[in-house]
Amino acid sequence: MHISEGILSAPVLLSGAVVSVVAVTVGLKKLDIDKIPQASILSAAFFVASLVHVPLGPSSVHLILNGIVGIILGWGAVPAIMIALVLQGVLFQFGGITTLGVNTVIMAVPAVISYYIFKPFIFKKNVISSSASFACGFFSVFLSGVLVALFLIMTEEGFVKIAYGVFLAHLPVMIIEGFVTMFCIGFLKKVNPELLPETTLCHDEILVNDKKGVLEGK
């Protein structure tokens, strides 16, 4: 989800740049130097995964995945998303020097917010966890859509209808994103729960339960 260059007004571009600089600084502070290879290679995986086109009726849409990025990387999602945007701009010649800040805000702020909202529910019972994961995928794209619309309207009041259009066009993406996030988090919980937040605690619990099971001869 991008806003191209040459559309937004100076105040919007400037505020986007300021917010993104602050967010990236916080993100980098919270990211331990030992964790950087992990964050970078995961960010490469997100880059590749966001090029995946999933079918939708006769056409196809590409995934955004900022919900899962948020859940896995937390605040680290902000630098990871900014880097993905720079790579997209330079490697595919999309440009995006002046809109880098705004686009980082559009993608990364929902990621961090959904990290805080949905993190506590990931290791709850299956029903709660799946619905929270679905909501996480849906909500992060929803919020990105809201931000795009907001930035467009702040630039020029005449953009209201286009902003609505952009938002509505993303509704199907939100639903697909919800399903993909739900299945993906379910998968990660089974296969590699270390990737998800606060697993050290849960993991220990699982181990303790397993040991109890062994001791009780189950």
Partner: peptide, 17 residues
């Protein structure tokens, strides 16, 4: 299809990590 793609992407994260 969505499940397959989701598992595929999940596996990609596991391998990356």
């Amino acid at each position: 299809t969505y499940k397959t793609y989701a598992y595929l992407i999940g596996m990609l994260f596991v391998k990356a990590s």
